[in-house]
Design a protein around this nucleic acid. Sequence first.
DNA 1: ATCTCAGATTAGATTTATTCTAAATGTAGA
DNA 2: TCTACATTTAGAATAAATCTAATCTGAGAT
Lengths: 137, 137
Amino acid sequence: MVDPSVLLERKGLKVTPQRFAILRFLQQTEDHPTADQLVEFLNRDLPMTSRATVYNTLGTLKDVGLVREVTHEAGVLRYDANIDPHHHFICRTCGRFDDLDWNLFGSLDLQPLAGRYPQIENIEVIIRGVCRECQTP
Amino acid sequence: MVDPSVLLERKGLKVTPQRFAILRFLQQTEDHPTADQLVEFLNRDLPMTSRATVYNTLGTLKDVGLVREVTHEAGVLRYDANIDPHHHFICRTCGRFDDLDWNLFGSLDLQPLAGRYPQIENIEVIIRGVCRECQTP
DNA sequence: ATCTCAGATTAGATTTATTCTAAATGTAGA
DNA sequence: TCTACATTTAGAATAAATCTAATCTGAGAT
């Protein structure tokens, strides 16, 4: 787990308390929080981060590639500090959102796409279903 | 292309002019329109469909499985009458949204997931990049 | 030390997509 | 025709995200 300050500096961004806290929280959680959940968490003890800053910061972190936007649910925008390629499982019942290992499916062969789509930047498999915890036995 | 009336009746839904028009439009377009684009189109010539009805109808069509919600863009919800499994390409520049053939990647082996995720309902590969038309040569 | 200025943060207003509500309409069957 | 229920409707309400204009902060210059 790299120090958030180092990551921010590498990207030429000033290290502010808000940026530090947001990036560190995203690094540490297994989850994929929404902007709103971030506001909630950051201000739980000591309110020091406005809603607008959370949106601004998530935007800049996304622009420099420190954070990914995850947009696989209706009306909800989530954020992920795991920027290595990986896949996702989404539970229809509880909304649980798991990262899945990139190598799960072996190597996806993109050859058939190369002609029609000359510039491919990201590939991701999305699996939807009901997770073990939500099974009704 | 199956008659929308037949599809609606099979699902036990009353055939109304609005439902018919919405389903037929989704069947005929290559695109993945938003609710707003549907309202716009349906009322172009003769206004006869309210915004609420478009949302209601899309909701019921989704519930009975005649239509799929596509949720891969921030803040935008699109609809697709192609309910056979398939993949998607999304252009970062123009937002273009193409269906890709299900067999493009051969068969995805789900065996490694079976233990952890007992109930898998849908799999989809999402490819993001820049389409041929948006290339700057 | 203090000044300056660009960048960062802020509260609150605004915009946009979606959902809700309660009334009006349409339709199938008695 | 009458009744009952589903559907549609306009407009209000909600929620997420963006915008705005003012304030704050801190690193380098003086």
